[in-house]
């Protein structure tokens, strides 16, 4: 897996940074001249992952969210979103569609479902008390075809 390009951003878990984070990752992905649908998929998946950090990982507190994005050989985008928040006790359960621990805030429980269906690959690693790392990958359509 050859890395063609890479960027890193780090920001506080404030909800106004949700828009900043998805725009920053999309601006980086735009270097590959992606199609509208691919960029919308990436924008939505990043928004879900970052929102999870703010709503769940750092619930009632504030911490840092680190994003590393890489452009890999073969028009593939790699995105890692890492927090040092509370972690997830049961990742499998958290990834079930419609499962939410925050129904009163109208969280739909579809964050991971969106990431899974809009990206090609999704991996979630979490240690309770230490934090969660989400890695997503997507091969972008070739615009010439």
């Amino acid at each position: 897996m050859k890395i063609i390009n890479e960027m890193k951003i780090s920001f506080l878990s404030k909800s106004e940074n949700e828009g900043f984070a998805r725009s920053a990752v999309c601006a980086f992905a735009a270097l590959l001249d992606p199609g509208i649908e691919d960029i919308a998929d990436i924008r939505t998946a990043v928004s879900e992952a970052v929102t999870n950090c703010i709503v769940h990982a750092y619930r009632g507190t504030q911490g840092k969210i680190d994003i590393t994005a890489k452009i890999l050989e073969g028009r593939e985008i790699y995105i890692r979103i890492k927090d040092s928040g509370c972690g997830i006790e049961n990742v499998e359960q958290a990834m079930e569609p419609l499962f939410t621990t925050a129904p009163a805030e109208e969280r739909s429980g579809l964050g991971f479902s969106v990431m899974e269906s809009f990206m090609d690959k999704l991996s979630v690693k979490s240690t309770p008390g230490k934090g969660t790392t989400v890695i997503m990958r997507k091969k972008l359509e070739n615009q010439d075809e």
Partner: peptide, 13 residues
């Protein structure tokens, strides 16, 4: 111009 699953919560609610 953009909506993530928070919009689902909005419609569902």
């Amino acid at each position: 111009g953009f909506m993530d699953s928070s919009g689902i919560g909005l419609v569902m609610g």
